[in-house]
């Protein structure tokens, strides 16, 4: 009787650990579902949209300009941010806000990326905390799952003039 209960408990514990570890590997290396909040990526991603992010291109260092990425917030590592990559290392980016008359340009340092939200007027991004190290990027958002009317790949940046072409 006791052995029976013990055996069941151990089996349950083993299955919990096994599936927990499989889930960790999947979320860490393949991708996961992210619920976005906040207005900074409007109109591409609205508040409380559900999107799918894949982590493979981040591990293989194939993030490109114009991709939307999930990254750790540089000023608070426990929260995440969701922004668009405007410049990779060595690119020239405009660091001033669009309403400024004087445009200030600077180069993105090595190993960093320049992130900006699509909603330039309401977004805390690289224009306030500077270039973000590549190591903080966790994944690339590839398509939207919810709302269903908007299901599919994400729209291109409405501020594409800020992404410099080379």
């Amino acid at each position: 009787m006791l052995w029976d209960v013990m055996g069941k408990t151990f089996r349950l514990l083993g299955y919990t650990i096994q599936y927990g570890c499989i889930a960790h590997c999947a979320f860490e290396y393949l991708g996961g579902i992210v619920v976005c909040s906040g207005p900074s990526m409007e109109p591409t991603i609205q508040n409380s949209d559900i999107v799918f992010s894949e982590h493979l291109s981040c591990h293989f260092y194939s993030i490109q300009k114009g991709d939307i990425v999930v990254a750790k917030n540089p000023t608070d590592p426990k929260s995440n941010i969701c922004k668009r990559v405007i410049g990779l290392e060595g690119d020239k980016v405009c660091t001033s806000s669009p309403s400024d008359f004087v445009k200030i340009h600077s180069y993105v340092p090595k190993g960093h990326v320049w992130l900006e939200g699509d909603n330039l007027r309401n977004s805390a991004d690289s224009r306030c905390y500077g270039p973000v190290p590549y190591g903080l990027i966790k994944g690339r958002i590839c398509f939207k799952l919810w709302p269903l009317t908007d299901f599919g790949f994400l729209r291109a940046s409405p501020n594409s003039h800020r992404i410099c072409k080379d």
Binding site: Q18, G20, C25
Partner: peptide, 14 residues
């Protein structure tokens, strides 16, 4: 395989 690899990877990661 499906027990050992995820458990090892998770252990090394966490």
């Amino acid at each position: 395989f499906f027990v050992a690899v995820p458990v090892t990877v998770t252990f090394l990661d966490r």
